[in-house]
């Protein structure tokens, strides 16, 4: 299994292929969202909605044997791509791995320019919620 930073480096490398082509970067994000495993619709409840997002984004944590797994979905395609990036990095990790992550890929792929400040706030909300789940399960453990 690749390390968190190896996956971040891959993401940075993928996005760098598009150079300044903003449209392709956004389409790539949408494609990432399409590759997500489907989420159990029973888990798409208000309790698992990310607050502060313009779109609906659900993050449902599953904690088994000290490892966190996330089921995610969104009603819109770019947001689904954004949460897919986090799933790519953080799925099947321990809570402490998640909590100790420096998410440097965000700055390196120029996320702010790509998705604007409003969406960036929503993206920050997803990160915060996933870390909150990690904190909760770490103390539970």
């Amino acid at each position: 299994m690749k390390t968190i930073n190896e996956i971040q480096d891959e993401i940075v490398a993928d996005f760098s292929l598009f150079e300044d082509d903003m449209e392709s970067k956004l389409f790539y994000l949408m494609d990432l969202g399409k590759k997500l495993e489907p989420m159990d619709s029973a888990h798409q409840t208000p309790e698992f909605l990310i607050k502060g997002c313009m779109s609906k984004v659900w993050v449902y944590p599953i904690f088994v044997d000290g490892i966190l797994h996330f089921e995610v979905d969104s009603n819109t395609e770019i947001t689904k791509g954004l949460v897919a990036l986090l799933v790519k990095i953080w799925n099947n990790r321990t809570p402490s791995e998640i909590l100790n992550t420096d998410l440097y890929f965000i700055a390196q792929i120029g996320m702010g320019n790509m998705i604007g400040s409003q969406r960036s706030n929503g993206f920050a909300g997803m990160i915060q919620q996933m870390k909150l789940y990690a904190t909760a399960f770490q103390s539970h453990n």
């Binding site: 389409f27 779109s55 790509m114």
Partner: peptide, 15 residues
């Protein structure tokens, strides 16, 4: 359909 209006705005801005 299936795109948030904000995201359509982002995609169009990319063009």
């Amino acid at each position: 359909e299936s795109l948030h209006h904000f995201d359509v705005g982002l995609l169009l801005d990319a063009s």
